[in-house]
Computed example of a mutant assay.
Amino acid sequence: MSVEIIPVRSKKEFKRFLDLEWEINRNTPNWVSPLRMERAKLLDTKKNPFYQHAEIEMFLAKKDGKFVGRIAAITNENHNKFHGDRWGFWGFFECINDQHVANALFKAAAEWLKARQRDNMVGPMNPSTNDECGLLIEGFDTPPFVMMTHNPDYYPQLVTNFGNTKIKDLYAWYLPTETALANITDKLERIANKIQARHSFRFRTAQLKHLDREIKLIKEIYNDAWSKNWGFVPFTDAEIDYLAAQLKQIVDEDLLLLAFKGDEPIAFSLTIPNINEILAKIPDGRLFPTGIFKLLFGLKKIKTARVITLGVRREYQHMGLGSIFYIETIKRAAKKGITAGELSWILEDNAPMNSAIQAFGSELYKRYRIYQYPLK
C-alpha cells in the first residue's frame, strides 16, 4: 500500500499528531513519557512565543488505514537573520520501522521548506536549539534526563537512509556525585580560590521571588555567552519569560548560580532536578486523575539532576569560571542528597568545556546527532 501524507489542519488531526509519540514509543526501552499538556503547549502556535518568528507545518503519515508516522517542517526567521543563512528545520519525528514511511515524511518536509526558499534542512529540532534537539545515536540503555530526547534505536537508520548526513554531534556526560567529590582535589580548589580572589568575582544564588530581575540578568549573559556557538539563536524576551514560567515550577534556587564582576553579571549556571524520575511513573503523560499526585509527592524524592546550561560572557571565558561553577554545584548537590547528574548537552567540538567536565570524572555516555539535507 502507498503512504499517504496528510498536513495537520483539524483539532482531530492535531490530536493524532500528539498521540503518535506515545503510540510509537510505548514499547521503546527506557523511553520516558513527557506530559501531554506540555507537548501540546510546545506545538501551540498561539501560545508559544517561538512561533512569533517561526512557522511550522505538521504532517501525518498514513498506511493501510493507520497513522504510522509524523514530522514537522519548521522555519525560524531569527535563526536565518542571526546566521545569515536560509536553513529550514525538521523535528517531532516519529515513525514505525518502515523506510517508505520515513522517506515520505522527509520528502514532505523537504518540499514544504523548498517552497519557502530554504536551501538546507537541519534537524531534529523540537523546534529549536533552545528546546529539545538531536537524535539519540548512542546510549539507548539508560533513560533520558529531563528535557533530553530519546528514540527507538532504528531511527538513525531511517534518517540516514533518506540521505540526511551528520552536521554536528551533541554530548551528554554522566557524573556520580561521589566520583565528582573525589575529583575535587585540594589543588583544584586552591586554583579556583585564586581565580576568584584575583579577579574579585562575586557569586550568589538566584532569588526566585525576584524572578523578573534574575531573568533579565540571565538573558543578557546567555545571549552574549553563547553567541558564537554553532546553532545558537538568541532568546527573545517573550521566549525566555515563557521558559522561565515553565522552569519556575521545578527550579531549585540553590542550584541557579550567578557570578558578578563588580556590579556586572558575567556568568550563570542552571541545574534542575531530573523530573523524568517521576514522569517515568506516568507512562500515559496525563496528569489527571492520578499523575498530578505522583508529580507533587515525587519532587522531594528526586535523586538526580541535570546541569542544563552554564554561560560565561565571552570577555571572561578564558578565566576558568566553569570549574568554579562545577565545584560549587557539585557540593551543593551533594548536600541535597543528589546522587548523580547529567551535564548536557555539549557540542562535540567544545574542547574546553568537554575537558573541564571530564576532569571531574564524568563519563561520555550518550551521543545525539544533528543532521542536514541539502535542498538545492
Score class of each variant (00 low, 15 high):
N120V: 13
N120D: 11
N120K: 15
N120I: 13
N120P: 01
M121F: 06
M121A: 14
M121E: 09
V122M: 10
V122Q: 04
V122D: 00
V122C: 03
G123L: 03
G123T: 05
G123Y: 01
P124A: 12
P124E: 06
P124S: 12
P124T: 13
P124W: 08
P124L: 12
M125R: 08
M125Y: 15
M125L: 15
M125H: 14
N126H: 04
N126F: 07
N126G: 02
N126R: 05
P127I: 07
P127K: 04
P127N: 02
P127M: 06
P127F: 09
P127S: 12
S128K: 07
S128H: 06
S128N: 07
S128L: 11
T129C: 10
T129S: 15
T129M: 15
T129W: 05
T129H: 07
T129P: 03
T129Q: 03
N130D: 05
N130H: 06
D131K: 02
D131E: 15
D131G: 03
D131I: 09
E132M: 14
E132I: 15
E132Q: 13
E132T: 11
E132A: 05
C133V: 11
C133L: 11
C133R: 01
C133T: 09
G134D: 04
G134I: 10
G134V: 08
G134M: 09
G134K: 02
L135P: 01
L135Y: 02
L135R: 01
L136G: 02
I137G: 05
I137L: 00
I137T: 10
I137C: 03
E138C: 06
E138S: 05
E138Y: 07
E138V: 08
E138P: 00
G139S: 07
G139I: 01
G139D: 04
G139C: 03
G139F: 05
F140V: 01
F140D: 01
F140P: 00
D141K: 05
D141P: 00
D141A: 04
T142S: 10
T142E: 12
T142I: 13
T142V: 14
T142A: 11
T142D: 02
P143W: 00
P143R: 04
P144A: 15
P144D: 02
F145S: 12
F145T: 12
F145E: 01
F145R: 06
V146Q: 10
V146E: 09
V146K: 08
V146T: 15
V146S: 12
V146L: 15
M147V: 13
M147C: 05
M147A: 11
M147P: 01
M147G: 01
M148T: 09
M148E: 08
M148H: 03
T149S: 15
T149F: 02
T149N: 15
T149G: 09
T149D: 10
H150Y: 04
H150A: 05
H150M: 04
H150W: 02
H150N: 10
H150P: 01
H150K: 06
N151G: 08
N151A: 04
N151R: 03
N151F: 01
N151H: 13
P152M: 12
P152Y: 09
P152N: 13
D153I: 05
D153S: 15
D153W: 08
D153Q: 15
Y154H: 11
Y154M: 09
Y154N: 12
Y154A: 14
Y154K: 11
Y154S: 14
Y154V: 08
Y155V: 04
Y155K: 08
Y155R: 06
Y155N: 10
Y155C: 08
Y155A: 13
Y155D: 06
Y155L: 06
